[in-house]
Design a protein around this nucleic acid. Structure first.
Lengths: 205, 205
DNA sequence: GTCTATATCCCGATAGAC
DNA sequence: GTCTATCGGGATATAGAC
């Protein structure tokens, strides 16, 4: 195999990867906008600009598309967490992560989480890469939550898992979309308000 | 028309109403468990114990089924609010309403809210009864929210509409299902934890 | 009004040429 | 790998007998 052919193969692979990335991004947006059940494969193909049959050369099923989109978000989130200062207070890092998920949601870049009884959920929990990614995220956040509780920054009477789920659910909180629909507030204000209700609650202080 | 025939008609109407109530309750539970898209009309008919064609004699479409279920929940909620003491502090009544929605959700009696871009949403906003019911609820709760803010019980820096949406979204918060799946807590504890994160937030106080 | 049986459509997935 | 064309299953909705 001569150098030229190697370059050619690499180029092809780059094209392949770029196309798959375009597919996954489109899936991501559609999952954010409509959810898994309402998203159709024809729609994905049309928005990517390829034939549906071509999609199935890249991904074996509609579920596989969704898994790829979820994996992408998990990796993006891991990258974001990786870039956070390890020496910063745990609460600050947690706030940064939650804010990141809210902004991603407003950017239509956060797939709506599968309902506990969704058909997609079974596929996800059966996927080792997905579960491994979730585990890494969960462990990292749980460590920060415990640290923030010990430091007196987060409510120590709440189980850490309850706080984790509170953050997790925020990532697809439909309240942001409702606030945006009203048209009274800028995206930044919406994020601030939800950050406030999440961490401070609605009670006066 | 003699008395006997009147009784007979009334009896028939009662049977009709009872059957429709059974249908709507079943729809309610299925909407709570799986959501609108995943619910099938065949499923509804099977669980009610009648033929699918008979369903369509009562309700014109799958959307009509969902609308009836949503209307039922709105009326139940209105009844609950009606029975609350008018002289109680606004915050107490608001807490009672939110708790009611959480308990209804755990009882699989709270339809999962339509996503902002759901096909169901268009049907709902086009329905005058539904919109009127929502308006009544919204006005009542908004009044209490404003009163609680004025009394220094709820955060006055948050827009009342943001607080309202915070409560609204809690009615289908998937966090309850996740906590229940973990099996570590009783339903009552789960409700208490979500009440805490909702009103007090996750921060320490 | 209730049933069985069926029409009709949509969607996920595939066949096969290029 | 990409395309057009199509299959097969499942879901909503209806026809027509009783």
């Amino acid at each position: 195999m001569n150098p030229a052919s190697i370059v050619r193969v690499t180029f092809k692979q780059q094209m392949l990867q770029a196309r798959e990335e375009a597919i996954v991004k489109t899936v991501n947006r559609l999952l954010a906008e409509k959810g898994f059940e309402a998203m159709t494969v024809d729609e994905v193909a049309a928005q990517v600009g390829i034939a549906k049959a071509s999609l199935y050369k890249h991904f074996a099923s509609k579920e596989a598309l969704a898994v790829a989109a979820m994996l992408r978000v998990i990796r993006l989130m891991q990258d974001f967490i990786q870039a956070l200062p390890a020496e910063a207070p745990a609460l600050e890092n947690l706030r940064a992560v939650v804010r990141w998920t809210l902004e991603a949601q407003l950017a239509a870049d956060m797939p709506s989480l599968p309902n506990p009884n969704s058909s997609l959920r079974a596929t996800l929990v059966a996927n080792q890469d997905y579960m491994a990614g979730v585990r890494v995220l969960r462990d990292r956040l749980s460590t920060w939550i415990a640290a923030a509780q010990a430091a007196g920054a987060l409510n120590p009477t709440l189980p850490a898992i309850a706080i984790l789920y509170t953050f997790y659910v925020r990532a697809c909180d439909p309240g942001l979309a409702f606030l945006r629909m009203d048209g009274l507030y800028q995206d930044e204000q919406i994020v601030d308000m939800v950050m406030c209700t999440c961490f401070d609650g609605v009670n006066a202080r």
